[in-house]
Design a protein around this nucleic acid. Sequence first.
DNA 1: CACGAGACCTGTTCGC
DNA 2: TGCGAACAGGTCTCGT
Length: 274
Amino acid sequence: MPELPEVETIAHYLRDGNLGQPGLPGRTIRSAEVLWARSIAEPTVDEFSRRICGQVVQQVGRRAKYLVIQLTADTLLVHLRMSGDLRVEPEGTAAAAHDRVVLHLDGGHRLAFNDTRKFGRMWLAADPQPVLAALGPEPLSAEFTADVLYGMLRAHSRQLKPLLLDQSFLAGLGNIYTDEALHEAGLHPNRLAAQLSPAEAGRLWAAIRRVLNEGIRHHGASIDWVYRGGEFQNTFRVYQRTGLPCPVCGTVIERRVVGQRGTHFCPRCQPEPG
DNA sequence: CACGAGACCTGTTCGC
DNA sequence: TGCGAACAGGTCTCGT
């Protein structure tokens, strides 16, 4: 499910509350139930369960696609990967299918980590830095300017699609927002990064920022079985629109596999490199 | 450094 | 209807 806008939306819900449930800050974790051991990346399941008890949630934030939950002594990092979801619910509610980790809180609530495909991971660490160390810049930060992006692109000979998905290059884009941004910028996914002109890099920069901000404004995209109430999927221009007309020029949207990922683009707005 | 294949998982949709 | 293949918002590791 989640790319930067979806994770930002979930962080916001966990911070401020959602659907009548309270936010996490101020809640004490009473106990932990690990239902799928591999969901815990670090430390061991036993140590995770022991150490997290009694810690109080201080703050909830986001870095790239990670949720960063600051506790009394440790930081709880959560990566939702493909199908993960985090929600606060009242104790006593029937447990959902695919709950992998449940943190029981004070005040009659629990935090459930639900993850159908079991790809998601949690880390409990005194210092979150090592886990986050390899990430590239935040695309919505003030430091990430068009000039900075141009410089970054010039240093790589890769195709745009796989490069933009590489979290050590730029942190937060996934398959949806990459396809949408490339369409918005009028750039073919197979274009080579180092060959973009400064004007093209500027268009790509603006497109990335706009698409991510729109995603956040729409509370992310909700497709398939993971429901978050987001609406961004209703504004897709190319993603999952194979065979449908491009909203800009009417040409039929094509799908092809680039870097092992389904890739959607308009062959007219995004001319293939010669 | 860049790229592709395979792994990790479950569930839904598509084609015959 | 049944059944296998393809596909899904992500990342990691390994081989070339």
